[in-house]
Structure formats: C-alpha cells, structure tokens
C-alpha cells in the first residue's frame, strides 16, 4: 500500500497587486501518493505553477499547510528550504535552464556541489544520471551543441542526480516537437515506473497528460475535476 508523499491542507495563496489582492489558490486540499505520476492541467492563471512552486518550497501559502514527506514547509526558513530542496526535489523546466558555460556533465554535477561528495564521486554519479537519460556520449558537449530534446534530457539527469523522491516538471515538453516530446514523456514515465520517482507535471498538452497516472484540472485556484489517465 502506497503512503502519502504530499499532503496539502486548506492551501490559499494571495498576492498583492497594487491595491488589489489576487487570490491564486483558494482553500485547496491535495494528497499525492508516493510513486504517483500526476498531471496538472488548466487554463493560464488557474494556479498550476503556483501550486508546483508550493510543492517545491519556492513559494509559501498565505494560509494552510504543505507537508512533503515528514517536512512541514510553511514554517521553514529560506535557508532551510534551500537545503530541503537540494535533498528532496528535482526540478525540470520548460526551457531546460541549463548553464550555458558548463558541459552536460558539469550541469548534471551542479546539485552534487551541495553535498560532501568528492569530485570523482560527483563525476561518477553524473555519468550514471546521463546514461539513464541516454546521453552518456554527450557528456562533454555544451548546451549550445545539443538539440532541444537532448537539453531537456540533460535537465532531467540534473533533476535525478541527487536521487530526490519528487520530480516537479513545469511544461517539460512545451518547447519541443511532438516526437521529441513523446520521447521525454516516455523517459519520465520510465523514471516513475522503474525508479519509483513521484512526478508532478504541469502541462497544457492533453497528449502529454496521457502519460500520467492521474490528471487534475485546476480552475481559478481550485481543483476542478480529477480525470483518470
């Protein structure tokens, strides 16, 4: 029986825009089981990315609680959240966000700089992560020398290199053609299936959402419906 990895309780998030208060998330409850692959869909401004940021400790709720594993995020300091992210979360962005001055290998090693591993061990683990995403032969290439799909694979290798439980993907195929997008989604599916990574993916693409085990629709800061994938 799977246990709950993420529990969001009565989450609200309000931003001040000039004199106006904008509520992006409204009294939202959500539980995500360990090993789940969840797709979050919804129109722009529905609160998908804000919710993803909450799960990754990049943003805090105005009210309510965010528990990931055994950690209550809403009370953590900024530096404690940084440490927590380094150990527990892997981020995958729409535009890959690789450092252009570093090779694929060194980009993947970046999260390991925050550990006590020596250079040799960092290199070994980065090479393993690159081989999981099928890019071991591109280790010494710079991002400008890679295709979009390859860059996203490097970003995925970077997300998994420190072996986090939770992968947060913000439109991971939004900048890719259909064929490449499918390859990336299959890779995410394999990470979920074979490596038991819990994945939360924000997407506008219904075809991409089909790769997930569950699909949640959001609208105006609340969860609208749950659709079986």
């Amino acid at each position: 029986m799977s246990k709950d990895l993420v529990v969001l309780t009565d989450i609200s998030r309000t931003y001040q825009k000039g004199k106006e208060k904008v509520e992006v998330l409204h009294k939202l409850d959500l539980t995500i089981e360990e090993g789940d692959f969840l797709a979050l869909m919804g129109p722009s401004g529905s609160g998908k990315t804000t919710l993803l940021n909450m799960l990754g400790g990049l943003d805090k709720p105005t009210s309510g609680s965010v528990r990931v594993g055994n950690d209550e995020l809403q009370n953590m300091s900024s530096s404690a959240l940084s440490r927590w992210r380094a150990n527990n979360i892997g981020f995958i962005f729409q535009f890959y966000n690789l450092l252009p001055v570093l090779t694929a290998q060194k980009n993947v090693e970046l999260p390991l700089l925050l550990t006590n591993l020596n250079g040799k061990e960092r290199a070994r683990r980065a090479a393993t992560a690159l081989s999981i995403v099928g890019l071991e032969d591109r280790a010494n290439h710079y991002p400008r020398e890679l295709s979009g799909g390859q860059e996203q694979r490097v970003a995925i290798a970077r997300a998994i290199v420190s072996d986090p439980n939770l992968l947060l993907c913000d439109e991971p195929t939004g900048d890719l053609d259909r064929e490449t997008a499918d390859e990336i989604l299959q890779l995410l599916q394999a990470l979920n299936r074979d490596h038991n990574k819990t994945i939360v993916m924000v997407t506008h693409d219904a075809q991409a959402a089909e790769y997930a085990k569950h699909v949640l629709h959001m609208d105006k800061g609340t969860l609208a419906t749950e659709v079986a994938a």
Binding site: G56, L58, S78, S79, S82, R83, W84, R85, A86, N87, F91, F93, N97, L99, P100, L110, P111, L114, R158
Partner: peptide, 15 residues
Amino acid sequence: IPELAVLKTLGFQDK
C-alpha cells in the same frame, strides 16, 4: 538572473 535563480532552485543558499 535566470541562471542564478536556477542555482537557488537547485538548493544553493543566498550566501
């Protein structure tokens, strides 16, 4: 700025 934000996202401290 986006690259520095990525570093922070990965867990690099402000300091």
